[in-house]
């Protein structure tokens, strides 16, 4: 029995199991446990103060949390769609270029090379109502009012979206460009011979081929955007008046500033539902798209 348990395959995968256990499983179990306690960072003894479902019960009635939850879904929906549109457009344009394509691909990836914190500071400065580049640029053209980019109800969220889209559209472009480069030329040439115009070729051949790549990109980015924190934290801190509060800025404040980690972890576990829902949806779509292409 012992010999069978310690067979070579088991021994070989044991380090991976242990690594995953220590790095992922144990922290997950620990944080899940703390969501049933009144754990405060500044009171380590409170880790053992089991409160059952109280944190989750409070969360159900917490209007601010559900507003942040809804705002995060809206943020996800708008940012993902715009990134997809811009990313697809850029990929299609670059795919047409026959000279300097590599250089352009590298330039396109520049925004991804900046840390989100740096991106946040850069856009915070651009959108600053007083010394910001954008308002001062507008003054040059005779505009006489300071636009509160980071304050206005729609403007503030729009400004953060602009920063997020600027920083990450290249991910869509790169993935979709890889898809475009992999499309066989024969069906496209056959369609043109049959008299299809460019839109018909794009709609009936290019897009179906790209769909698996689109859904992979959407899955990756939905997980990223769902955890958006750095750029929001730097640009507005979730304010003013919680107008730009997303789930993770709220969780960070409750967990680290209020030191109320038990409650913050309960919020985290509820918010994971969002990531699971988006991932499940995009994966279902991915499987359907692959099936349509005759792939399994």
């Amino acid at each position: 029995m012992n010999r069978k348990f310690l067979s070579s395959p088991i021994i070989l995968i044991l380090p991976s199991i242990l690594a995953i256990g220590f790095v992922i499983i144990i922290p997950l179990i620990f944080s899940f446990y703390t969501s049933f306690t009144s754990y405060k960072l500044t009171r380590p003894d409170s880790l053992y103060n089991f409160v059952g479902l109280r944190n989750y019960e409070r969360l159900i009635d917490n209007v601010k949390f559900w507003k942040a939850f809804g705002r995060t879904i809206l943020f996800l929906a708008i940012v993902l769609n715009l990134e997809l549109l811009f990313g697809l457009g850029i990929a299609l344009l670059i795919n047409k270029i026959t000279w300097g394509q590599r250089t352009l691909r590298t330039i396109m990836m520049f925004p991804m090379m900046f840390s989100p914190i740096l991106v946040g500071f850069q856009w915070k400065y651009i959108f600053n109502d007083n010394i910001g580049l954008l308002n001062n640029f507008l003054y040059l053209f005779g505009y006489e009012s300071a636009i509160p980019w980071l304050i206005g109800k729609k403007l503030a969220m729009g400004s953060i979206m602009a920063a997020e889209i600027w920083a990450n559209t290249a991910i869509f472009s790169i993935l979709l460009l890889a898809g475009l480069l992999g499309i066989p030329r024969d069906p496209i040439e056959a369609a043109r011979v049959d008299g299809c115009n460019s839109w018909q070729v794009f709609k009936n051949i290019t897009l179906p081929f790209l769909m698996p790549f689109i859904f992979i990109a959407l899955t990756i980015r939905s997980l990223d955007v769902g955890r958006a924190y750095d750029i929001v934290h730097i640009m507005t801190g979730g304010g003013p008046a919680m107008r730009t509060e997303l789930i993770w800025t709220m969780i960070a404040r409750v967990g680290y500033k209020d030191a109320n980690m038990g409650f913050a972890n309960a919020m985290s576990y509820v918010s994971i539902i969002l990531s699971i829902a988006f991932t499940y949806y995009f994966f279902t779509k991915l499987v359907a798209a692959r099936r349509e292409l005759g792939q399994q």
Binding site: P240, A241, M242
Partner: peptide, 23 residues
Amino acid sequence: IPEWIPFSNIIFPELQAAIVGDK
């Protein structure tokens, strides 16, 4: 008191909400 910062985190978004006219 230890609750000063948690209290501040409760009240400051409400102050802002009144200032920008949300409440």
